[in-house]
Design a protein around this nucleic acid. Structure first.
Lengths: 143, 143
DNA sequence: GCTTGACCTCAAGTTGACTTGAATTCGTAG
DNA sequence: CTACGAATTCAAGTCAACTTGAGGTCAAGC
């Protein structure tokens, strides 16, 4: 179990040291000791940081992320809540797929205004799956 | 083509009027006139707002979104750039899928610390597709 | 033993995306 | 004609997630 100091973590995870300090400050990750002043981390922190990165790219706040795989990789949340999050992600994945297809269509379609193009409208329409459950509120930023 | 005033747009899109004003201010959408003081919008604005919502949930900034489907639904960006964005989305969709699977696994797996669970590590490992192209930088927040 | 470079702390600053509040202006219903 | 409610402007405030800067500390190499 090789111990990493903050510089190595920063380099391997491509995250500035200041951010790692900040993450520790808010309890998202934790250092395992010091070498002089230097923070030392267990190698697992790299895995945690990967999770954090994914969580962020899914639009979760750092607070939510720390609830999902807290300080030591154990979730604070009940199973049901975790399944709800997963369901959110399914919805979001469908949306992103529609967005991706829309983007590719826009890149190819010669129509002058896409708002008039039926293909475009159909693609965007995929978003139109209504039914605002609690889950959607986060996604739609309706708080 | 029925014209909508800001209240209707706000209600149908579930977006506060203040936000709509803000979006107009930054040139993301545009109103088509006034009725007294009240802003009026073309119905297409609802489609645009759906796109904006998707773009946001994909992690794009409002500035990027307005580059993709600017003020009247026409992209400012060259095709190549749009395809790059779509590629980003593909990557992100893969990540979100991994995250979703990880979440479901965490909800089910009885292991005390997930960092020790091989299934967990494999799932998170999907993220490990390295090769930091310009595109990844945004996703990874390495600017 | 001294220098150097990477790290430290702590407070303050930044950015993006909105929201809030006070004072004002319409248009419609009564 | 007046009251009402829904919108308006504009400046200022908020929040999350970091970043920056000044001034200090340490351990490893020469």
């Amino acid at each position: 179990m090789k111990i990493l100091d903050i510089g190595e973590v920063s380099q391997k995870a491509k995250i500035p040291a200041s951010t790692l300090r900040y993450y520790e400050e808010i309890g998202l990750i934790s250092s395992i000791g010091r070498h002089g002043l230097r923070r030392q981390f267990a190698p697992d922190v790299l895995l945690q940081l990967a999770l954090i990165s994914m969580g962020k790219s899914a639009g979760f706040s750092l607070k939510e992320i720390s609830g999902m795989f807290g300080r030591d990789g154990k979730p604070d949340l009940p199973r049901e809540e975790l399944q709800d999050r997963a369901d959110d992600l399914d919805r979001q994945i469908r949306e992103l797929s529609a967005l991706r297809d829309t983007l590719r269509h826009v890149a190819d379609c010669p129509a002058p205004s896409h708002l008039e193009c039926p293909t475009f409208r159909r693609l965007v329409g995929i978003m139109g799956k209504r039914g605002a459950k609690k889950a959607d509120l986060r996604v739609l930023n309706v708080t």
